[in-house]
């Protein structure tokens, strides 16, 4: 339960309410290995602790990267961190995305809003072993053009010939020439083999529900759909009971679940 002190190496502003921290271990803590989709508990001295997914490159274990949305006291205080500041880290926790199981398959990544952050490590992993996967499509939807996360990286990825990158916004802005419409409208346009595709979805629950419906329409097997769930978390290790989701603990049985495993409770209200 002890947070390890990490030093802030860099703070990068992403959008008006999101920022990325690059952290390095102190006190001789060197590498930090994690699986794409896992999360850490980040602690701000005296203020509190929050669960944040890891959004860096799993191959680069020297730097720990977290993209955070400032929506509460703790995350807002983290927004004020500067290079050289110390932050506490516990983790990594949870089960991640099925990047190994997806080898040999087409991969469909559907992200909504800040939900792109826990999927970015998947992208790094897929691209570092590009030959092991079939078609890869990233479908990303967010609120407005100025809410687009990692826009430079998305641009770079879009310029590759071996990737489909589609970005949409719920609300257009004046100079936006791109797609307008919810992320589910991108699904019929993506090119993949529904019978051999593994889908990884992260975003607000309602967005994931609509997305799954659209994927099923295209014939993607339920057993190949994976979702990342969010619940209140205090401990990260299954002691505190807060993150219960039906019979599961999101912190240790998730946050990534095969849709099949939670399908029976996925649409039950207030579970």
């Amino acid at each position: 339960m002890l947070p390890h002190p990490f030093t802030v190496e860099r703070v990068r502003r992403e959008t008006h309410d999101t920022f990325t921290l690059e952290l390095k271990g102190t006190n001789g803590i060197g590498g930090f290995s994690f699986a794409p989709g896992q999360f850490n508990m980040l602690y701000r001295f005296g203020t509190g602790e929050v669960p944040i997914s890891i959004s860096g490159d799993p191959e680069r274990s020297d730097t720990l990267v977290h993209t955070i949305r400032a929506v509460g006291t703790v995350t807002e205080s983290m927004e004020r961190l500067k290079k050289g500041d110390i932050i506490g880290v516990r983790g990594p926790f949870g089960r991640g995305w099925p990047v190994l199981e997806a080898r040999g398959c087409d991969v469909l990544i559907v992200a909504g809003g800040i939900g792109l952050a826990p999927l970015r490590p998947v992208m790094y992993r897929l691209l570092s072993r590009r030959e092991q996967y079939g078609k890869i499509a990233i479908l990303y939807g967010t609120r407005t053009p100025s809410d687009i996360l990692y826009s430079k990286e998305l641009e770079q990825w879009r310029s590759r010939f071996d990737l489909q990158v589609r970005v949409t916004v719920d609300r257009g802005e004046k100079d936006w020439k791109g797609h307008i419409g919810v992320v589910t409208t991108l699904i019929p346009r993506a090119s993949f083999d529904p019978h051999e595709a593994v889908a990884m979805i992260c975003g607000p629950e309602v967005m994931m529900r609509f997305t799954i419906r659209e994927l099923e329409k295209r014939g993607v097997r339920r057993s190949n759909i994976h979702v990342s769930m969010e619940r209140n978390m205090k401990c990260g290790i299954g002691f505190c009971g807060h993150c219960q989701y039906g019979p599961t603990f999101v912190c240790k049985d998730g946050p990534v679940f095969p849709y099949e495993k939670i399908e029976h409770i996925f649409r039950i209200r207030e579970i």
């Binding site: 949305r69 909504g112 419409g181 409208t185 309602v206």
Partner: peptide
């Protein structure tokens, strides 16, 4: 399809305080 999309759009799901209703 467009009706479903419009409904989802109406929910403004990425807004910080739209995550949970009630």
């Amino acid at each position: 399809q467009r009706l479903q999309a419009a409904r989802l759009q109406l929910l403004d799901v990425y807004h910080p305080h739209s995550g949970v209703a009630g």
